[in-house]
Computed example of a mutant assay.
Amino acid sequence: MAKYKRIEELLLQKVFKVRMIEIVRKRLRWLIMVSVIVCCGSPFVVGLAFAADSPVNDGFTVAKAFAKAQKEHPGIAVAGVAPSAGVSVSRDLVYRDDVGRALHVDVFAPKGDKPAPAVLLVHGGGWMSGSRSHQEPMATYLANRGFVAVTVEYRLSPEARYPAGMSDLYAAVRWMRAKAANYNIDSSAIAILGCSSGAQMATLLGAIKTSPEYAQGGPYQAQSSKVQAIVNIDGIVSFTTPVALKYENDPAKKPSAAEAWFGGRYQQVPELWEQASPLAYVDKHTPPTLFINSSQPRFHAGRDEYVARLDGAGVYSEVHTLPNTPHPFWLFDPWFESTAFWVNAFLQRVLASSDP
């Protein structure tokens, strides 16, 4: 633990200082409220305290991922990107507040004379942990190149099981269109990008042709939740392939990350495991899709068949696999630069000719 704490301190100083100050302030407010609970024993105050923030799960943090990856790749460094002149950052904007608490986005917006294409960025963490701050380097990189980049907070499995987090992503896309004039967003050119579990969620939202029932909750229902491009960074697109079931339905894990998200193993709720598999929806209406993968086949589950179906439907796709890479490669240099380059090139290509 002391080792992780020291690594965390170094990383925060380098990349996440401003963001972590905000988080620390929130935690201090939470601790103050807990102190009031202890002193006063008020059930009303208890309710306020635990509604302030989502349940905390630090299973996946940049510090822990760095410590693990550095053992095999000692030359890596945490990726960090500074915003260019003219890029504004608007933090902690509420996009949804009808689920018992407020959910937030951060917007990285470049100055421009005309509306710009936009990207919603979805963090990973096994559907149970992680933070939208993990996507800040990519969001900043894209904003520096003319995209409006939006990092999103969504409900994780310790707070609410599937499909709650998916419902949040649909609401976030609608919010982007509702606020297009505020942030100079071209509402006809919105992409969704996800990493790891966030990539599975992003691909699912993009692949489903019509909004599912769980997307009907939340504000701005008059706005479309359709996206014009998908970027999948090392996320599975099928929960029911043999390789996916080997890991996501592993009886040695109690529960596995997928089991915790779905509220049951594949044998218990197969309909949910199938419903959440983007591969089931791929056809000619699926948006152009970019895959960027690590060297670990576990996170390619369903990818090749997904691409084959896109090819058969005449839909553009790209696949890039980085050799000798850990799963969370997108967080670290030297791999971040290649990843960001491919993302930017793909989005520049497909969003320039997207349909509303």
Rank of each mutant, 00 (worst) to 15 (best):
I292P: 13
R155T: 06
T140E: 03
R19V: 04
G130D: 01
K209D: 12
A260K: 02
T321V: 06
S224R: 03
L142H: 05
S35K: 06
V319H: 05
F332D: 00
E8R: 15
D92Q: 13
D234Q: 06
D98V: 06
V89S: 10
V152K: 03
W335T: 00
W175F: 13
R309Y: 08
S211I: 00
Q348N: 14
G217S: 15
A260F: 03
A116N: 11
A52F: 15
L93R: 09
N324G: 08
T203E: 02
V81S: 07
G47V: 08
K3S: 15
F291R: 05
Y95E: 03
V150H: 03
T339D: 07
A139S: 04
L156M: 14
V18E: 12
L142V: 05
S256Q: 01
K179S: 13
Y214P: 03
E274I: 14
Y220G: 05
K254R: 06
A345R: 12
S42T: 00
S197Y: 07
Q228A: 14
K14L: 12
S54L: 14
G130K: 00
V282N: 04
P117G: 13
N249F: 07
Y220E: 08
A301C: 08
D53H: 12
C39A: 15
D304G: 09
R298S: 10
K284C: 10
I233V: 12
S238Q: 06
A215S: 11
G194M: 01
P288S: 07
G100Q: 07
D97Y: 09
N324E: 11
Y306S: 11
N249K: 01
Q200A: 11
S353E: 12
P323M: 01
F60M: 13
L169Q: 02
Y247F: 14
D92S: 14
Q267G: 09
I236L: 12
A313L: 04
A340W: 08
E213T: 02
D333I: 01
N293E: 11
R161L: 12
A280R: 15
N249W: 04
L279D: 02
L272F: 09
F147K: 00
Q268T: 13
Y95K: 01
A49G: 12
A2Y: 14
R6A: 15
H73I: 07
W261L: 10
Q221P: 10
M138D: 03
I230P: 11
Q348L: 11
Q228L: 09
V227M: 02
H73R: 12
L93V: 14
D106K: 02
K71N: 09
A276Q: 05
A280W: 04
S224Q: 06
K3V: 15
I37A: 07
S225I: 02
H104D: 00
Q221E: 11
M128D: 08
F262H: 03
P74F: 15
V343P: 05
